[in-house]
């Protein structure tokens, strides 16, 4: 890798440097101003008390102590965290489980499989705000599509979003509808990389579809499963838009749909009801969320990568 200016040392070297600097500067400046600096500040701010928009004094770990151990903040934090964990587990099971089945069905490349690929991915390109509002209307207890359809088979009106027991599940359903196409096509891409010879050989040995799916395809797509798992984890812990749109800023009813993203937003930018905002506590929450996501991702990557090698 050399470039044409290698003979132009000496008098022309400065022109080369200037040219390279001109190419790199715009991107670097934006990154330093709007990624590097905010990120470093995010960690620093977590240790400060805030007076409005400006940090007013260093208070050590006080913000962390409040959000983790002091009521009522700690109750809110743990309640939200619990829902993030539930969301992650539910999405792994229902969203990625369904995605695996559909990907396996698409792998067969039966007539119409390309149309099905386009269809399953269609909701992915829509804004979460559209998806959230659409399902909020559909889940309306009296006039919503879901209860109208269930009414046809004699099931009575269920207040999906109004009941603490069904609200989180309903929101998760909308989220699965929105994102299903993503893991489906990622897993499909993984399956399509399995060599035809391997699949053919298994077939000749008399392996049925089920054996093929569990014994050959599943282990061989381990790298795709790793990526889908990690992205689901990151997505579950940064979850914000759909809960915000469908359940509101406080995770109604009764905090049963509150997640860390909502709680963080309320803390940092004030809820509509209280109007109180605290950048210090908000920063502490952001740092904790960052450490949680980055830490678990790093550990999971090591564990999942090892699984890939063993297979």
């Amino acid at each position: 890798m050399t470039d044409g200016w290698r003979h132009s040392e000496g008098p022309f070297a400065w022109r080369r440097s200037l040219w390279l600097a001109a190419l790199l500067t715009p991107a670097l400046v934006v990154m330093v101003l709007f990624v590097l600096w905010p990120l470093l500040s995010a960690f620093r701010f977590a240790f400060y008390e805030f007076n409005g928009l400006r940090p007013s004094g260093f208070i050590g770990l006080e913000n962390f102590r409040q959000v983790l151990f002091e009521k009522p903040y700690s109750d809110w934090t743990w309640n939200a965290l619990k829902h993030n964990v539930i969301a992650f587990l539910a999405l792994m099971l229902f969203e990625n489980g369904t995605a695996f089945l559909i990907a396996f069905a698409l792998l067969k490349a039966l007539p119409g499989h390309r149309v099905h690929q386009v269809i399953v991915f269609l909701p992915v390109v829509l804004s979460a705000v559209i998806v959230g509002f659409l399902w909020k209307l559909f889940l309306h207890p009296l006039f919503g599509l879901v209860n109208q359809l269930l009414g046809l088979v004699g099931i009575g009106a269920i207040p999906w979003l109004g009941n603490e027991n069904t609200a989180l599940g309903s929101i998760l359903f909308a989220n699965i509808w929105h994102w299903l196409g993503f893991p489906t096509l990622v897993l499909l891409a993984g399956m399509q990389r399995i060599s035809k010879d391997v699949l053919e050989a298994a077939r000749l040995d008399g392996a049925g579809d089920y054996a093929l799916m569990t014994k050959i395809v599943w282990p061989l797509i381990a790298p795709s499963v790793t990526i889908v798992t990690i992205l689901t984890f990151i997505g579950s812990f940064n979850w914000f838009e759909i809960p915000y749109v469908m359940a509101g800023l406080t995770g109604s009813p009764g905090g049963s749909t509150d997640v860390l993203g909502l709680y963080f937003y309320r803390t940092a930018f004030g809820s509509t009801t209280t109007g109180i905002q605290d950048f210090g506590q908000g920063s502490a929450l952001a740092v904790l969320m960052f450490i949680l996501v980055a830490g678990v991702t790093a550990i999971a990557l090591r564990y999942l990568r090892r699984r890939e090698i063993e297979q």
């Binding site: 101003l33 709007f34 990624v35 600096w37 905010p38 990120l39 500040s41 995010a42 701010f45 928009l53 400006r54 940064n238 914000f240 993203g261 940092a268 950048f279 908000g282 920063s283 952001a286 740092v287 969320m289 960052f290």
Partner: peptide, 10 residues
């Protein structure tokens, strides 16, 4: 998203 507070201040 997690750096939104300093980003906002910036």
């Amino acid at each position: 998203k997690l750096a939104i507070i300093p980003l906002f201040i910036q």
